[in-house]
Amino acid sequence: MTCEEFRALLEREGTAAAQAGAEHLRHCPACEGELARWQEVEAQLAAMGEEPVPAFLHARIMAHLRASAASAQRVPLKVLRPVWAAPLLLAVVLLALGGVGVWHLVQRPTAVPAGEAQSAVTAEAPPPALLGKGAPVPVMAQKVVAPKQADRPLEVKRSESPVPRADSRAQGEQAKAVARGLAVNQAPEEQAEVAALAAPAAGEELLRSGGKPTGGTDTRSWGSAKQQVASEEAPRAAQLSRPPAGPGPVQVRCQLLDGEDFPRATVWLPEDRVPGIATVWEVVVGEGGEVEVVDTTGTPRPEVASAIAQRLPALPPPGRYRLTQAPLPDY
């Protein structure tokens, strides 16, 4: 063993290397001195483990532990005591509900586009013309005579908005709607109906159960059912038209209802080509994809038919439908 090897062994093993290098140490006083120094260092380091500690160390540690234990016990006594927890929770919930109600009351007369987005019934944005000042007259008119929630037909939901909103609050609410993917302000029963629309297999069971998740062999949760509906909704969403961008006549959102009053498509039409409030026009979709529209006086409206055919990416199945203005969301 060379001196270099012995010193490497010393670094690797400490003074325990003395045994392995005993033969070398007998003939090398330098390495013997090196070993003695390391032994001294180790002895000094070990002596640090015997240093006296402050006399009050134990008392301070125990006082710290007791103080911490006492403060930890005060928290549940003051805040989390069950007697106070329930009223506290109730008060918070009531305050939150009150705040939402007041906000809706304040917003109701002026912010229809925002309300549309806030209701999250549909994330489809109105045309830019509706966002200008004074433009939403037809929409306000709709709102006055909007049918009651139980009577009005449902709308198919979208999960993205084609046009940016001018109203920042609406944007925020719209973003929430997008994040949720489905209607959030609807009762479970309504959600179930929408689910039935979008995905009959998933939705019919929810309809039967009144919008609540069912037990039995179907192990999907309500949330997972909604997710499935959202994924199955994709082809359905293709039947929603987008409002034309840019300047032009005011656009009104209309629906094609089937024989059971279910909306089979939503389409934005110019305000001069839509049925009046609470008015229904007949629409026939032929086998070849031709569209015919007849108004309440029996007059054919080919311009409306062509608008529908142009703006719907995919027509609903052949059959008879009714064209109406889409109801406003329930505030």
Binding site: G49, E51, V53, L57, H58, I61
Partner: peptide
Amino acid sequence: RHEGDTYR
């Protein structure tokens, strides 16, 4: 028993 080692 262990406060000394810990403190050091």
